[in-house]
């Protein structure tokens, strides 16, 4: 049973058609990467899964169940947790409050505040400061922690390394590897090929809104990967 499956999905923002016949799936326990240059529709793919981009054709399924009306909160309750591009830490809320917000789907599982604090100890130290007052790297940790608080079946990360210093990306990568080793299913949308290579088992390449290539990361060299993700 696939945690997420897109079958021949067409999606658009208003009249602007962005995705054309995209099909992909993520199975339980898999780490899958979506590669592609800027503007090819990677974020639109995520937005289609939460109903922000309009589904014009095709079918989206969460956990094997076809979804007729996609809405952001139903996606979260169905087990999809998203670490959005730009992190979207809620202004005015403390780190702790952002984490509590993440637990809104009320799903059972290993993740709670303590477990997130153990994964990212800096969040424990800064629990009562405003989330938006932290550095970019710390905010990214908070965004990941917030997503984990939902005890998701599938963690979707949209460009988590964007705007971060290389040393912070390494730290983030290590945390994601630990998550992957614990069996967390991950869909990673990323242009940092080092991070993609470290985490993913399979990949899809998007170009002009369509999947143009897919395969196993095992056979893919860093050089070929670079070709797909370079701007």
């Amino acid at each position: 049973m696939s945690l997420l499956e897109l079958e021949s999905v067409d999606a658009a923002y208003g009249k602007a058609k962005v995705l054309h016949g995209v099909s992909l799936k993520v199975e339980k326990g898999e780490r899958v990467a979506i590669l592609g240059r800027n503007g090819v529709g990677k974020t639109t793919l995520v937005n289609t899964c939460i109903g922000v981009a309009r589904l014009n054709g095709g079918q989206v399924s969460f956990g094997g169940k076809k979804v007729s009306t996609i809405r952001a909160f139903t996606a979260a309750r169905s087990g999809l947790a998203i670490v959005p591009q730009g992190r979207r830490i809620v202004p005015g809320l403390t780190v702790r409050e952002n984490l509590i917000l993440g637990s809104a789907p009320n799903r059972s599982g290993p993740w709670n505040q303590e477990a997130v604090f153990n994964l990212f100890p800096i969040l424990r130290e800064r629990a009562d400061t405003l989330g938006t007052a932290m550095s970019g790297g710390q905010q990214q940790m908070l965004a990941i922690g917030r997503a984990l608080m939902a005890n998701p079946d599938l963690l979707i990360l949209d460009e988590p390394s964007e705007g971060l210093a290389p040393v912070v990306v390494d730290e983030l990568g290590d945390a994601l590897v630990r998550l992957a080793q614990n069996g967390t299913s991950i869909l990673l949308i990323e242009q940092n090929f080092g991070l993609v290579h470290k985490i993913s088992e399979r990949y899809y390449v998007l170009s002009k809104g369509s999947v143009v290539e897919q395969g196993s990361m095992r056979g893919l060299s860093l050089e070929s990967l670079k070709k797909h993700v370079s701007v």
């Binding site: 939460i50 952001a72 979260a76 409050e97 509590i100 917000l101 809104a104 789907p105």
Partner: peptide
Amino acid sequence: SRAGLYVRASSVDSLTTAMQGVDT
């Protein structure tokens, strides 16, 4: 309260709040 937290969150970023599973 949890509902109050959701209200504060939704009043500044409704989409992100919905993405966390809150029926905004």
